[in-house]
Nucleic acid binder design. Structure first.
Lengths: 186, 186
DNA sequence: TTCATCTTTGAGTGATCATTCTAATTTGAA
DNA sequence: TTCAAATTAGAATGATCACTCAAAGATGAA
């Protein structure tokens, strides 16, 4: 490998960006703030990224990918496993979870790219949940499984949202409660 | 009434602020943007508000108060009525609902005042929901009713959050689905 | 050791931010 | 109609924003 110095700087910048978005919000994630925290100067930042936007999008893509782990289970996962995976994501990757929620709210209003990316991801996520429900309840109609999956995924995001506000919020307990409520008859 | 002109300008500014936060996010809610939309100049803005912060806090307080209507029902409302009230709030006061969610995420990180205000409001809301659950299920322990209320309120916020991203999201249907799942045995 | 290439430095750019100020205009009680 | 008080106009301030650039320094293949 040639010139690894630049790669390390890149990591430091992405790490700083990730933590800043979670701790201070998108609004406060300025070039200066990123560089201060990464111990780097603006010139170095722009040597590695074309724009502030690019660094943020990189981190956001990271977060979106981290939400859905184990793609090799696709088509075989249980609903409970999907919920547990999200709980693990929120609790063990708090920085990325913070990015995910921050983007869901602030990031998607002025940035069509982020908005599209997020909505496409959400859609795929709902489908994965719906498929799991259908596997466990073959008698249920497709429209119904989709609707229940939408409710569950959105509700889980609500849990993640509250966790950002209150680090003591018991994500596991509330997430599992939603799971057991998700398949109740109307 | 003397000098009503100022009051009208104040309304125009608050209205512009409300819509801007919902449509473009806190980040894009600048003095210039507010004034342009309100058809007013910065001098007029600062004649009526001490700071941009003050206008935003005014709108946020408005939103927080609008979430919980009919305080005269306090101590008598059913869980279903509370959920319906939130559904009505989200669908019929989209601007304020957008403000509410935007603040929940971006507003509370750097602003301890907003953060405290939001968390206090959330706590009161959970208590109100818990009391309704307890009334309908007297056999349930207090700790249990609180936990279920926390799950439900956070999950409802998740529904509201998704509605901000997708205006076609069927808030009523998903909100009611959460209600029926909220009292399922573990 | 040489030297082309990669990387960092840090001052500097124009744009835009929240906010201020003074002068002009409008208001409404008298 | 008068006039003090309320309100608006609009240019100006300094701070901070994202971003650029030329020069210095570090790197590693030969």
């Amino acid at each position: 490998m040639r010139y690894r110095a630049g790669l390390e700087t890149r990591d430091k910048i992405l790490d700083a960006t990730r933590r800043l978005i979670t701790e201070a919000g998108l609004e406060s994630t300025t070039i200066k703030a990123i560089c201060d925290r990464a111990g780097v100067l603006p010139g170095s930042f722009y040597n590695l990224f074309d724009s502030k936007e690019q660094a943020i999008v990189t981190v956001v893509r990271e977060a979106i990918e981290a939400v859905d782990p184990d793609p090799q289970h696709l088509g075989r996962d249980t609903l409970a496993a999907l919920v547990e995976a999200y709980i693990v994501f929120i609790t063990s990757q708090a920085d990325l979870a913070g990015v995910y929620i921050a983007i869901a709210v602030s990031g998607t209003r002025n940035n069509p790219d982020l908005r599209g990316r997020f909505l496409r991801h959400h859609e795929g996520r709902v489908e994965r949940f719906a498929a799991a429900i259908e596997r466990e309840h073959p008698e249920m109609e497709t429209e119904e499984t989709t609707r229940r999956a939408e409710t569950l995924v959105s509700a889980l995001n609500g849990i993640a949202l509250h966790r950002v506000l209150d680090p003591n919020f018991d994500v596991a307990r509330h997430g599992r409660a939603l799971l057991s409520g998700a398949l109740t008859p109307d």
